[in-house]
């Protein structure tokens, strides 16, 4: 199974091959968890999103390539699935409340107590103050700005790729990046 490339494995998954699914998952789960974590900044939410994304892959692998006129590679296709699962996760009410909570705390200079609510206790003990500040600043960003910034800055995607994943024009994507960066610079001014 290891000899097959991702696209061939995905085709096999579409035919109901569990071994191909396991191979594909073992190969990529850590990377897509990393992406989901950077979007959601919560281990629990990221794991939920990743789990949902792999379940969707199992259910919809058969539709891959069949339904599109211009076939996507596994990476491009699954990237979209993960981004959509993260957006679904962010749309859940608890996240909205959490983000608003953090935003309120930030405005009152209570950054650390705000980030405490997002991070796991084990992670909190290990992470530096800078990291907490950065996470809090990222969480305050509007969802689209955060995703755009993550795709571009952390994932290193090109403008065209990231814009297509988000389904926005190039100009709109550039504008999202500029606003995100301005907001982050403002919130992290004392650290730079």
């Amino acid at each position: 199974m290891d000899d097959y490339d991702d696209d061939s494995l995905l085709l096999k998954v579409g035919a109901g091959d569990q071994q191909a699914f396991k191979t594909l998952m073992d190969k990529h789960i850590a990377r897509y968890f990393q992406i989901a974590y950077r979007f959601l900044l919560s281990k629990h939410d990221a794991e939920d999103a990743v789990q949902e994304a792999w379940m969707r892959l199992w259910r919809e692998a058969g539709k891959w390539q069949n339904n599109s006129r211009r076939p996507l590679s596994f990476t491009a296709w699954f990237y979209r699935v993960v981004v959509n699962c993260c957006l679904d996760q962010l749309r859940r009410p608890k996240n909205v409340e959490l983000n608003e909570d953090i935003a309120n705390n930030l405005s009152e200079d209570k950054v650390y107590s705000a980030s405490n609510t997002v991070l796991t206790p084990e992670g909190l003990a290990q992470q530096s103050e800078t990291e907490r500040r950065v996470k809090a600043a990222l969480l305050v960003l509007p969802v689209r700005q955060r995703i755009a910034f993550t795709l571009f800055f952390y994932e290193g995607l090109s403008y065209q790729e990231a814009a297509s994943f988000l389904g926005v024009s190039l100009k709109a994507f550039e504008s999202l990046i500029i606003r995100a960066r301005q907001s982050l610079r403002l919130r992290l001014a004392d650290l730079i």
Binding site: M25, I29, F33, E47, V50, Q51, Q126, V134
Partner: peptide, 20 residues
């Protein structure tokens, strides 16, 4: 450099098993 200070925790070992 400051923005790079986002530590990504390790994925739970049981997650892949759960999915399977």
């Amino acid at each position: 450099a400051v923005l790079r200070h986002v530590y990504v925790p390790a994925i739970s070992a049981s997650l892949a098993q759960q999915i399977c």
